[in-house]
Design a protein around this nucleic acid. Structure first.
Length: 893
RNA sequence: GGGUGAUUAGCUCAGUUGGUUAGAGCGCCACGUUGACAUCGUGGAGGUCACUGGUUCGAGUCCAGUAUCGCCCACCA
């Protein structure tokens, strides 16, 4: 018996749950106790750790509600595994966000009327660092507010020296292996950011435009070859016209030339399979420098490429009279010139999808440019294999197909960016043409010839460093203890929208650099939308700010709302009303505990090590029932958590607490508290049940559960380190008997309500309970209390019903209550009501009979299913008989 | 074009391995402060589980197809 905690228990709980009062201060206390770090002695003993590396939020502002979802999900996993006794590491971090980070600071500069070029590289980077240093702590504070139980002592930032070294090490490794190369290719260029971006950073949008039909005069003939284009301005860079090799309309022209209007260039007509005979005129202008398909046609047919654009997409010196014009102005001007020359055949409206920069939404431009690439073939293969042989699994499973498909059709990865903010490419050039990759931060002289060196000015794609995250955060490339203990990790939890851009890259880089898949499970969550289903955005003004909402309703409520409304891999819709409903659940739990504590504090609670001991001895039906139900919800929630069905687990725990513990057990217990011996049992059952329920709920709602747990008799220091409960047994007899009791009480309440009996009025009842009579007799006070039946007017029988014409009938399966309501009974209405009941019961009987008369059902269905039908039939028959008797007793009126 | 998800109560969504009468929250109607909780309780109304066909003794659940909406990938001169 341990009662030491009772003495130190804080003052009585407030009447109403106040989330902000509950949550204040608790987090720091947990942190100070060191609960967030994996238990070192457990690790030393070689216990298998549970490891989640947090997807590092971009340091580009404050957290949104999507971040709150991932914090909630990952915290549930971390807290659950910790309670299961596994040394748990949830490693937090933040991402420098390359192009996005630079963009945010550039926007701030723009407000001062400055550009990054005005500042110069060094000063600009100082500004970015200033921004990062200001916002990283804010993000950390927000995550703490949400209750994230991650290990802050291991917090990592992608630009920290460790991860930076990992980046250089990896780059050099891949470079030396020939997997990183530099080349002139068609890439996607953002004219606003003035950098190459990868195809995954382009977002396509359907836009209304025109198809312009331009006529090119065929040289040495009166013919005109008409081409259809959505981009007339690029004709300045045309180096050919292509037609399909089997297009009889143009067969005679292949090999001839057209004179390109305005620029007056003679360009050949070529044949290429890529051309679609049915589109436009069947003839395509070829602009190898500004269209990926044209680039390929040019490669196949040997056409040259002429770049007509500057880095900002304005027309360059190759554009002749149009030099200096923007893309848009050049388009108008070119079209106008064609019109003047009588070469504009026609203009048709045309809808097509246009690529935009993911960051700044500027229309991107295909350009030929010299960039660094990662060769993907040999890296993708083992990443693909890992998903096939089960070393890597997905939740939900369907994402495996998406992942496979991407890896099967992979293109080389453009990793260089013409940005300033990010990891500088660790390549140094010397004046004698030597190119050196280095793991060191700087290189003084060329290792080959000793000449002076300059570093490549570009930086790496931000996902290059992110791809190393599962091990660069653990000290790699140094062989640290953390790396040994925590690599490979367990679960990668992140949004499905970054499956390719991040998850796949972690997998292949993990396999390449570490020789092992970085995690065995990928859990993917969806997007949190507003209640209309729209994505939240500042411009739409439909953003739900997690900090604001948790200040009002509590982080517990926000977490609970986010998790229970979402299912794996699916988008969800959040409204403040849902958070409010979750807060109300907190209030319910709060008050149930408050009620229980009154009784608990009047009694000595038997303890079993950490927690109130399971009640034994003389238990009432209600006690046995709630214990059995507790075991059931324990079993279910464990199974559901094990299957990553967090929302369903949370809902079931809620259902148990609210509908079973509060609505039935606590209500039924009230009448028992007058008896001191019974009160002691109730106190023990309440202490045990609530304490265990709090533990089940703790991963979902950490703050309120800790607060209430501290009020209850307990052994350990914190619910965070209390063991995860295990189910003990199932008491089927108690579940059946109490279930029947509940049904009866509901039925009596229903009858009372129908008959208009005032809720406060105590009535009489004759209950015919059959083989449950003994159970009901033992629970007569509870029945009387719950259904408002006066104890001295409550008779429970095992035998057949005594017929009283002046009574109404409540039916609950085979249990029947006769309620002599005297003046309240409207015989006509009662006859009608019972006739309806009889009809329902008869139908029920017929359904069961039909099932059982089906020979294939009886012979093929499993025995227990058939047995259920037999019992169902028996019950229905009894009901029909009883209702028939009642109707007979009422007479014909 | 390829892939994939959704379609269940007025709204937002659950429904795990096929098994009795399909659930929750919010909203709605009626009643109500009994020893926690009005952020509450009791009772009630409300569903052809998108449609068609199939498998099965049995389908919201499995299979095929159709429709509508959404997302991803590719293409879009």
């Amino acid at each position: 018996m341990d009662t030491t905690n009772q003495a130190t228990r804080p003052a009585e709980l407030a009447k109403t749950y106040d989330p902000s009062a509950v949550e204040r201060g608790l987090y720091d206390w947990w942190d100070e106790q060191g609960y967030f770090a994996p238990n070192d002695s457990d690790l030393t003993e070689g216990r298998q750790p549970f490891v989640i590396i947090m997807p590092p939020p971009n340091v580009t502002g404050v957290l949104h509600v999507g971040h709150a979802l991932f914090v909630a999900l990952e915290d549930i996993m971390a807290r659950w595994h910790r309670m299961k006794g596994e040394p748990t590491l949830w490693l937090p971090g933040a991402d420098h966000a390359g192009i996005a980070g630079q963009w945010v600071v550039e926007k701030l500069l723009a407000e001062e009327g400055l550009t990054r070029q005005d500042l110069g590289r060094e000063k600009f980077l100082e500004r970015v660092w200033g921004f990062m240093d200001e916002y990283r702590p804010r993000i950390r504070e927000q995550m703490k507010l949400l209750g994230a139980s991650c290990d802050w002592s291991r917090f990592a930032f992608t630009m920290d020296p460790g991860p930076a070294k990992a980046v250089r090490h990896t780059f050099k490794h891949l470079y030396d292996k020939g997997l990183i190369y530099r080349g002139e290719r068609m890439i996607t260029w953002c004219p606003r950011c003035r950098t190459a971006i990868s195809d995954l950073e382009v977002k396509y949008r359907e836009e209304q435009s025109n198809l312009w039909y331009l006529a090119y005069p065929v040289e040495g003939s009166d013919e005109r070859l008409v081409v259809a284009t959505t981009r007339p301005e690029t004709m300045l860079g045309d180096t050919g016209v292509a037609v399909h090799p089997e297009d009889e309309r143009y067969g005679h022209l292949v090999g001839q030339h057209v004179r390109l209007p305005i620029v007056d260039r003679l360009i050949p007509i070529v044949a290429d399979e890529h051309v679609d005979k049915a589109f436009g005129t069947g003839a395509v202008k070829v602009t190898p420098a500004h269209d990926p398909n044209d680039f390929e046609i040019a490669q196949r047919t040997g056409l040259p490429a002429i770049n007509v654009m500057n880095a900002d997409a304005s027309i360059n010196e190759n554009g002749g009279e149009f030099e200096g014009l923007s893309r848009e102005a050049a388009r108008k001007a070119v079209v106008q010139r064609f019109e003047e020359l009588g070469l504009l055949e026609k203009v048709e409206p045309h809808t097509h999808s246009v690529g935009h920069c993911e960051r700044c939404d500027t229309v991107v431009e295909p350009m030929i440019s010299e960039q660094w690439f990662v060769k993907m073939d040999s890296l993708a293969k083992p990443a693909y294999e890992a998903a096939q042989d089960g070393r890597l699994t997905f939740v939900p499973e369907r994402f495996k197909g998406v992942y496979d498909n991407w890896l099967e059709n992979i293109h080389d990865w453009t990793i260089s960016r013409q940005l300033w903010w990010g990891h500088r490419i660790p390549i140094w050039y010397c004046e004698n043409g030597h190119v050196n990759a280095t793991e060191e931060e700087t290189l003084d002289a060329c290792p080959e010839c000793g000449a002076a060196v300059v570093q490549d000015p570009d930086v790496l794609d931000t996902w290059f460093s992110s791809g190393l995250w599962p091990f660069s955060t653990l000290g790699w490339p140094d062989q640290t203890l953390d790396l040994k203990r925590f690599y490979p990790g367990s679960v990668m939890e992140t949004g499905y929208e970054i499956l390719f851009v991040w998850v796949a890259r972690m997998v292949f880089l993990g396999i390449e650099m570490m020789g092992e898949v970085p995690f065995h499970t990928v859990y993917l969550h969806g997007i949190v939308r507003d209640i209309e289903g729209a994505k939240m955005s500042k411009t739409k003004g439909n953003v739900i700010d997690p900090t604001e909402v948790s200040n009002e309703y509590g982080a517990d409520a926000l977490r609970y709302a986010l998790v229970t409304q979402a299912s794996p891999g699916n988008d969800s819709r959040l409204s403040v009303q849902k958070v409010e409903a979750s807060r109300n659940f907190g209030n319910k739990l709060w008050n149930a505990t408050r009620f229980a504590l009154r009784t608990i504090s009047d009694h000595e609670i038997a303890m079993d090590e950490q927690c109130p001991a399971r009640p034994t001895g003389e238990l009432a039906l209600a006690d046995r029932w709630i214990l059995s139900r507790l075991d059931e919800v324990t079993r279910n929630s464990t199974r559901l958590l094990d299957s990553y069905l967090f929302g369903e687990a949370g809902r079931q725990i809620n259902d148990f607490i609210w509908s079973e513990l509060c609505d039935w057990y606590i209500e039924a217990s009230k009448v028992r508290l007058k008896d001191p011996a019974e009160a002691a049992v109730v106190a023990q059952v309440l202490a045990y049940t609530i304490e265990r329920s709090l533990r089940l709920l703790h991963p979902f709602m950490p703050f309120i559960t800790e607060t209430l747990w501290q009020q209850l008799p307990h052994g350990g220091e914190s619910i965070m380190v209390a063991p995860w409960p295990e189910a003990v047994m199932r008491d089927e007899a108690a579940e059946r008997a109490f279930g029947s009791l509940m049904e009866l009480v509901r039925s009596i309440r229903n009858v009372r309500s129908d008959a208009g009996v005032e809720p406060a009025r105590w009535i009489s009842a004759d209950i015919h309970a059959g083989d449950l009579a003994a159970d009901f007799e033992a629970s007569r006070r509870e029945i009387g209390f719950l259904a408002r039946i006066a104890d001295d007017h409550l008779r429970i029988h095992a035998g057949p019903a005594e017929q009283n014409p002046q009574a109404m009938t409540a039916i609950a399966g085979e249990v029947v209550a006769s309620l002599p309501l005297a003046d309240m009974v409207d015989l006509e209405a009662e006859r009608a009501r019972l006739a309806k009941e009889l009809e329902d019961a008869t139908q029920e009987q017929q359904r069961a009979e039909k099932q059982l008369s089906n020979e294939s059902f009886v012979s093929r269905a499993p025995e227990h299913v058939v047995q259920v039908q037999r019992e169902r039939l028996e019950r229905a028959k009894e009901q029909v008989a009883v209702i028939g008797q009642r109707l007979a007793a009422l007479g014909d009126g």
